[in-house]
Each structure stands twice: as structure tokens, then as C-alpha cells.
Amino acid sequence: MPKPILELKDINTYYGMIHAVKGINMEISKGEIVALIGSNGAGKSTTLNTIAGLLKPKKGQIIYDGKDLSHSSAAEIVKMGICLSPEGREVFPDLSVQDNLKLGAFTRKDRAMIQRDYDKVYSLFPRLYERKVQVAKTLSGGEQQMLAIGRALMSDPKVLLLDEPSLGLSPNLVMLIFDLIKDIKKLGVTILLVEQNAKMALKTADRAYVLETGRITLEGTGKQLLTDDNVRKAYLGNI
């Protein structure tokens, strides 16, 4: 395996008094889609929020591109090329689609490249282009999800963290979002995906980790985990 672009070493994170993530080790190589699956409260979002700098790990290291990020602020981490599209979309409700995307590029100064990325995001999500002057709260759930992902892409990330991108979407839209995730991979972006929809996540991902009550219990390629008996029973509804 090539040298990982992002590596978690013995990460421990607390939510107040709750020990939510208990010594996680993960490796993500450049250009991969890695999925992190698990039930509610397993620590998936906590892991992503820790990488993005919203939560500080009590112990452990997050190595990105040879540097330890575990003490960097959320703003510094975005500048270094890791961007989180958070659970629940969290778009700016009273700003236009265009201003939401502009904020995605907040840390960048290279105007020509930013313009290129607007074009890139609008060609990935033509629906956003049609609605670019509308304020975000008037968009449908699926469109808001596209906006949240598009906004994250505007930071020109090397690593994109996606937290529950399919949550609350109709089956058609779920398919669309996962197709888009594959398209984003083709642009050369490494993706770490957290999902409750384990089946879709495992089909899309190159590799995956299973998280249970703050610990990683299984890892493997997407295909291996799709056929694993324990995974099938616990997360795929025993099909």
C-alpha cells in the first residue's frame, strides 16, 4: 500500500465526560474512498469532527501529509486541505447558493483557480447553477446536501470528509449522491465517508472500517465487508 495521506494513531476523544472515541487507528491512502460505518452513537461523527478540528483529541495523533494536526484549529485544517461537509448539511440558510459557495473558498486567494472551481462545482451539480441566486433555506433537502458538498469542494480539498451525505434523502437521491461521490473521486479527491446506509457506503468505498462503541472492530475492502457475516447481520439487515 502507498504511503497514507491521512493517518489516525490511537485517537481518543471525549464529549464532555463521555469517552466517545477509544483509541482509533486508521489509514487513508491518496485517491481512495474510505467508508466508516457503524450504528448510532458508535463515534463516527465524533471521529470526523476530531479530524476537522471541531473537537480536540485527548490523546493520539492525526498525521496528514507528514504533519500532526491534533493541535491545529478548524480554520488551519481547512487551509491545509481537509474539509468537512457536516451532518445535517449546515448550509447558511439566509445566504444565496453563490454566497454559500463563496464562503467555501474563504481561505483561498487565487481568483482564477476559484473561478475554475465554481465551474467544476456547477458542472457536478447543475441544479445548484439553476438556483444560484436563491437563498439556501428555499432549497430541497437533496439540493441542500449538494450545496454542502459543493461548498466543501470550493476549499479545493485534498481530503473530503462527508458526514452522512444520504441522511433523509429519497432512494433516488441517495443513488444520485453516491454517483456524485464517485465523480468527486475521479477529480483526484480522497474521501472519508461516514454513513448509516452501510450497503451503499460499502458498494461505493474502496475500503471500510466498522466502528462499534468507539472502537474499530473490523476493516477490509468494501467487497469483503459486504459479504462478511457479522456485518451482514448487524448493518445490512441480514440479506
Partner: peptide
């Protein structure tokens, strides 16, 4: 000013955009 409006509407998302 755009950053101010972003913080006003969602401070957490603003910090994810790299806004201090």
C-alpha cells in the same frame, strides 16, 4: 462582512469554512 453574516447564521459551519 460575508464572514460576519456566515458567523451570524451558523458559527460552526463558518469555522468549517476556515473562518476564524
Amino acid at each position: 462582512g460575508l464572514a460576519m453574516r456566515a458567523v451570524q447564521q451558523n458559527a460552526k459551519a463558518a469555522s468549517l469554512m476556515g473562518i476564524d
